[in-house]
């Protein structure tokens, strides 16, 4: 299967929506990594390098949105959501401005840079802000579709991309906010995942077939707003839910699912993610092994919980 990094799709989509002359891109000295440099090559006059100053970049994007432009501001997920949290809150979310933020190099799959650079609370930070939409696409194709769709969304949007290459497996030509896809139907339990964990969830489900466990797998790239109907119907059908995300189990996708289900259809939910710990240096594969993000580890955990 073809493998491509979701950040590559950000660059490509940005160039394509750049046909709209109101689109501007901003970066904080990481344009080669986030891929906003692709936009710079084609539209140098509408690209603004703001230097290593993420807070100012976000406020400048807000000012541009106030002036009628459509700003896309990118940096590593850890910086754009962490360092610039206050401008995001005050200047973008509070006045509900249409600014699209892209956090690349998310999760622990950024690898060797280590725990200081691994964004594992960015979904949590962005999800907590009123008006903010949070999108964690599963693959290159879905990222491309989401970035394109973001041009016509309202208010602030956070799109999370990854450094590492991952399988391109979705058929997401059109991205719809608040819509999840059922990747595989099943009746014994549901796995809800986002980002590159969606493919991992599919692989884990495949493994569990051997144990006669038939899982339903849902890709929920739209973490906020959550596709409540799909989550509700699946939870009702299977009665047991697992969530998998390359993020802390506190306040990420799993929490969003729990918040919804606890009120509307309380069932057993088990969250798989970073368990309130920071990552460390290592290759992506070594880190995924250590922190339990392999198909075998996920399958085993699900099996244990279902049998326990």
């Amino acid at each position: 299967m073809e493998k491509k990094a979701t950040r590559e799709a950000y660059g490509k989509a940005l160039v394509d929506i750049g046909k709209n002359e109101l689109v501007v891109a901003l970066d904080a000295d990481l344009s080669g990594s986030t891929k906003s440099a692709d936009f710079k090559k084609v539209y140098p006059n509408r690209f603004f390098n703001m230097g290593i100053a993420e807070s100012n970049m976000v406020d400048v994007a807000a000012g541009m949105a106030l002036s009628g432009l459509k700003p896309y501001a990118s940096s590593f997920a850890v910086f754009v959501t962490g360092r610039a949290f206050e401008p995001i809150r005050q200047s973008i979310c509070y006045p509900n401005l249409h600014v699209v933020l892209c956090g690349s190099h998310s999760g622990i799959s950024v690898g060797e840079d280590g725990g200081s650079h691994q964004a594992i609370v960015d979904i949590s930070l962005m999800r907590s802000l009123p008006n903010m939409k949070v999108i964690v696409p599963a693959d290159y194709k879905e990222t491309y579709a989401a970035v394109k769709a973001s041009l016509d969304m309202e208010g602030p949007v956070y799109i999370r991309t990854s450094r590492a290459k991952s399988p391109v497996f979705t058929n997401s030509d059109n991205f719809e906010l608040g819509k999840a896809q059922i990747l595989k139907e099943g009746q014994d339990a549901t796995i809800i995942a986002c980002g590159m964990m969606s493919y991992l969830a599919l692989e884990a489900a495949e493994l569990l077939k051997k144990d006669n466990i038939n899982l339903e797998v849902i890709n929920s790239a739209s973490v906020k707003p959550l596709d409540e109907d799909t989550v509700y119907n699946s939870a009702k059908k299977t009665g047991r839910v697992f969530t998998v995300e390359e993020h802390s189990i506190i306040d990420g996708l799993g929490s969003a699912v729990c918040e919804f289900l606890s009120e509307h259809h309380p069932v057993f939910v088990h969250k798989i993610g970073m368990e309130d710990v920071f990552g460390e240096s290592g290759t992506k594969d070594d880190l995924f092994c250590k922190f339990g993000f392999t198909k075998e580890a996920v399958a085993q955990r699900i099996k244990d919980k279902l049998n326990g």
Binding site: V24, A62, G63, M64, L66
Partner: peptide
């Protein structure tokens, strides 16, 4: 002030 920079840059 940082938003003002953005408004000026937008011009």
């Amino acid at each position: 002030i940082a938003q003002a920079v953005g408004i000026a840059l937008a011009a």
